[in-house]
Design a protein around this nucleic acid. Structure first.
Lengths: 354, 354
DNA sequence: GTTAGCACTCATCACATCAAAGTGCTAACG
DNA sequence: CGTTAGCACTTTGATGTGATGAGTGCTAAC
């Protein structure tokens, strides 16, 4: 059934009003503030019809109307005013990214912070998966007690959280030898390729076979996002929204965000094709708590994945603001990374000419 | 004024009862459950007197009595039954530490988890400060883009979170040279000594002077506990205690535990002499939220500091259980570390004999 | 199709009432 | 003089009632 323009307009008003007042919207409020050319009775008829269509619900007869998840979805698709950010907000974003560094972990944290500050919601982020990055160098660094730290340098990260058991008898320069072997074997490969090497193919490494096998085992840890690449910013922001005066909701919310695994699940399985992704309540995704919405954006610049960032908050969320922030942060990131890459290329060319 | 034995006994009963019921304690309840040889009127007289002494308060005339912070302090000092843990709990502890590893960060996390699980409170931990550890080796590992990772191996950790800017022109083997210089200069020193080296004393390092200065700068970061060494376990446990049905308390609590700096402040400034430290409400320490108690223990074994661990929860806390858990975890840690050290010594001796 | 008018519903608030819990006080007791 | 029985007093919490107000749904008229 096609909705009349007036129905759409009324639905838009209800959602807008409810989003920034958190109070059920009445027919009177609509005609007084927005639709001055029709009577409240007419609006009432429309509201009743919208309710029948599943867009509105009411807690009790005399309580005004509240948008349903379906309404929010329609609102985001068709009704929402795609607003621009204020100058102050835009400045805030560019300031935050002005002292650019190449450090991915640091970047993830600042992006999450910026999003949380500007939207006033708790933000969640999962950094780019390392596994498609190409290995530039691999080093095994002896740490004593029969252990060595495996350091992998890729295009944009330094992975350094795997320890490898090595024979205690192994001398430091032997470890150096193994490092060289590792480089020879893996440099230039993506991490995902590297870990596919069969342990059985290591016969030729003789006495170092066992160590090599352990390294390959360690590489597998990068198939999943690392704990360090899952961040949360502004958890206390949740208290700024009236739906979380209720202890039960807070409990729900906290039980999700205090586990990095759960955060990754919620943010994780994005369809890469879609820029902005909205999950509302448990209707859309079993992992999202019943009374929560999650809005995420997956960024990439220059063909490089930059991670997925978003906010988690009440279903009655300021989607317009959130989406505007996510988009603008995305633009800023693109410029930032674009800039770094151009610069890098420039300096490499310079090197060539020397 | 000296308290009569009966007063003490009654105070003990009130605190015990309140701790495990969370309901204000009445004179009737006391005589019925514990003090069958006196009448409730007598107990009432004593209660009134204890209230005058500052140990008890009542919300309203007909509401029974509740212990004051002063009462909890006295309870912990003199009245509390220092109970032992159940066999199941003891098993849980030894199981948790059975797959021992030398990795400090991992150890901190498991200790915090064990404490939180056994006590049913949120636990906080600050790992041992690295700065008194002796440097065994220092390596600078080139990462491209004019950066290098500084890896410092000490007796019980591998520190690897400092990046140093190096001239882009610097070749990899030059970086190796600098590594050797670093080792020569710093190996055997404690981190706290190493960072006292004056940058001005580096004249002799010629072209590498700048890099060395940056390394010294980086060493200063270990004066404070590192973010990774501050952990929190079981934040959701707070909801298991009725005082946190109140949203205001939850807010308070969350605002503290969601900042690692604040956790470090609360747990941090322990008097090393004291084994177990109890801070109650804002009476004892401005950093502790008004309605919270923090119980911590600072562990060491074989002269080595193992960090400070504890729980944070409502003032009405099961101090007996908490303290028992902290003590037993301490014992287990001592055995664990003692064992590792003995083993190490053993193998070193063996080496000597070869 | 729109609207004025009105009856109806439901939440909220103020207020009164009642029982239950617990104390404080007094007077009597051993 | 400490202890205790007895009772009046206070306060909470549950329950009920009535008034108020917001908002709707429906009907009949435009």
């Amino acid at each position: 059934m096609k909705m009349s323009d007036r129905k759409k307009r009324i639905l838009q008003i209800v959602v807008d009003e409810y989003i920034n007042s958190a109070v059920p919207v009445s027919s009177k409020a609509i005609t007084e503030k927005h639709l001055k050319d029709v009577s409240s009775a007419t609006v009432r008829n429309e509201l009743a019809s919208l309710e029948e269509l599943g867009y509105l619900t009411q807690f009790h007869t005399s309580g005004g109307r509240v948008p349903s998840p379906q309404a929010y979805r329609f609102y985001i698709e068709e009704l929402m005013q795609r607003g621009n950010l204020s100058v102050a907000d835009l400045d805030y974003i560019s300031d935050a990214f002005s002292n650019r560094t190449g450090d991915v972990e640091h970047l993830i944290k600042s992006v999450a912070n910026v999003i949380s500050e500007l939207t006033d919601y708790t933000s969640v982020a999962v950094g780019p998966n390392a596994e498609e990055e190409r290995i530039r160098s691999m080093t095994l660094l002896p740490c004593g007690d029969g252990r060595a730290l495996l350091v992998i340098v890729t295009g944009s990260r330094i992975l350094r959280d795997n320890f490898i058991d090595i024979p205690e008898s192994m001398a430091d320069d032997e470890v150096g030898n193994v490092s060289h072997m590792l480089c020879k074997l893996f440099c230039g490969k993506a991490l995902s390729e590297a870990r596919e090497v069969e342990a059985s193919a290591l016969g030729e490494f003789g006495q170092y076979r066992q160590v090599m096998a352990e390294v390959i085992e360690a590489l597998k840890s990068y198939a999943r996002p690392r704990e360090e690449d899952i961040v949360l910013a502004g958890p206390e922001k949740i208290f700024n929204h009236p739906e979380y005066e209720d202890i039960g909701n807070v409990k729900n919310f906290l039980s999700v965000i205090s586990s990095k695994d759960k955060i990754a699940e919620i943010v994780g399985d994005e369809d890469d094709e879609i820029q902005i992704n909205v999950k509302i309540g448990s209707t859309d995704d079993a992992d999202v708590p019943e009374d929560c919405s999650v809005v995420t954006a997956t960024y990439s610049a220059g063909g490089k994945n930059l991670g997925t960032y978003g906010v988690i908050g009440p279903i009655r969320m300021d989607y317009s603001k959130v989406i505007a922030v996510l988009e603008n942060v995305g633009k800023a990131l693109e410029e930032l990374i674009g800039g770094i890459q151009k610069e890098k290329k420039g300096s490499e060319e310079k090197k060539d000419h020397e």
